[in-house]
Design a protein around this nucleic acid. Structure first.
Lengths: 185, 185
DNA sequence: ACCTGAACACCGTTCAAGT
DNA sequence: ACCTGAACACCGTTCAAGT
């Protein structure tokens, strides 16, 4: 009880909010419910977050840090797959990070974090096209769009035929890699 | 005044809701505000839509029909660009269609409509990779991801250097096409 | 500094009526 | 059949207090 009154409320709120986000999505996340789960009044969160958006922004920031970490655990050739797998493992977090719900102009640090994940993919797919800047954008677009469309269930049948989401994703990314390989041959 | 009481309320609500969607986004769209703009009580919409989600679903359906129409106006090689341009021209509509806000499992006709836009892109990018099914998925993913990332402003600097969003998008899509061309040479 | 409780203006949704 | 008005249980946010 008294622990929350001693400076641990902010992380407690983030944890409670994170759970709501994962299970019900950002749209269902209310400050009041997070406060309830943290055992404080509906008003206590305002000591730690100026408004609802800034709590969502903090959750998105956690997500960007985790995404960067998971992508960097992989060898370069597998970073695209790591990106897709992150989205599949944390669908609601991914939607919060990239769903346009947050006014990114008000949170420039979030956009910077998002571009941190692009820097890695750039190297991974650098030879997708000639100009490396456009190639990097194409690489990020490819894995980002694939992640989104998988989350929306738009490849449901194809996934079944491929034996699972991950196997399907690997084949889609692999088909582009194959085109690149033939080009250099 | 009395016109709305004679069967024209449904389209009037869709029009009012569409305007709110375009200016403030799906999150800010309330049934009560749509009803207000249509000049009826906050409760009248329930005669035409069972709940808020089904109004959003109707707006998304309009979007999918428009997307399909605009994509089919272009020659095959330009359909990817048409897809991106649709997203840029109707950002909030695009986010509603693909932002995960709607429970697509409850609206199977929407998912069918979404896949209608893929059918065209499949032909347009059919030689991106060997297996045409995976190549089609890669093509849709590429344009879809590019559209999303452009809307989120993640390519802001690169866009400036390229002289505008559309020019940048064209170069990104072109860089993939260039890789394909080199491969067949 | 951090938290509580009352208050206000919004929602979505339901129900009982009105025409 | 279609619409209104009252009502209920939620929100985000602000303000005046409490410790």
């Amino acid at each position: 009880m008294s622990t929350y009154h001693h400076g641990a409320l902010r992380p407690a709120l983030l944890e409670a909010a994170g759970k709501i986000l994962e299970t019900d999505g950002a749209g269902a996340l209310s400050l009041r419910e997070a406060a309830r789960r943290a055992g404080v009044s509906h008003n206590a969160p305002y000591r730690h977050f100026p408004d609802r958006d800034s709590l969502l922004a903090a959750l998105a920031a956690e997500g960007f840090a985790l995404l960067k970490h998971e992508v960097h655990l992989r060898p370069e050739g597998d970073m695209g797959m790591a990106y897709v797998e992150f989205a599949l493992r944390h669908p609601q977090r991914f939607r919060l990070m990239f769903g346009g719900l947050l006014p990114l102009d008000d949170y420039p640090e979030l956009r910077a974090q998002a571009q941190g994940s692009q820097a890695s993919l750039q190297r991974a797919f650098a030879d997708l096209g000639e100009d490396s800047r456009f190639a990097a954008a194409a690489a990020w677009s490819l894995v980002h769009g694939l992640a989104h469309l998988l989350l929306d269930g738009h490849f449901a049948e194809a996934q079944r035929a491929s034996g699972g989401v991950a196997a399907f994703a690997r084949k889609v990314l692999g088909s582009v890699r194959a085109a690149r390989a033939q080009r250099s041959a």
